[in-house]
């Protein structure tokens, strides 16, 4: 589930539960979740680059 979809569903649920005060907190959490996922992507890219470099050196 992407973060935008998550946020839409979470805020709709908060509204349905009578907790509109949760919305700004959920927006803050959404930013943190996006950053967490971006960190994971960055780690994967870093690992892929390291692997590619190792493969390039491996033939020597």
């Amino acid at each position: 589930m992407d973060v935008a979809t998550w946020l839409a569903q979470a805020t709709a649920d908060a509204d349905a539960r009578g907790l509109p005060q949760l919305k700004p907190l959920l927006e803050t959490l959404a930013k943190a979740t996006a950053a967490l996922r971006a960190a994971e992507d960055a780690d994967h890219s870093e690992q892929a680059a390291e692997y590619a470099e190792d493969q390039g050196d491996g033939g020597r």
Binding site: M1, L19, L25, L29
Partner: peptide, 13 residues
Amino acid sequence: LRLEMGGYVLAED
């Protein structure tokens, strides 16, 4: 509210 917020964190995250 902070506790309620916790209930929305997805297992994958």
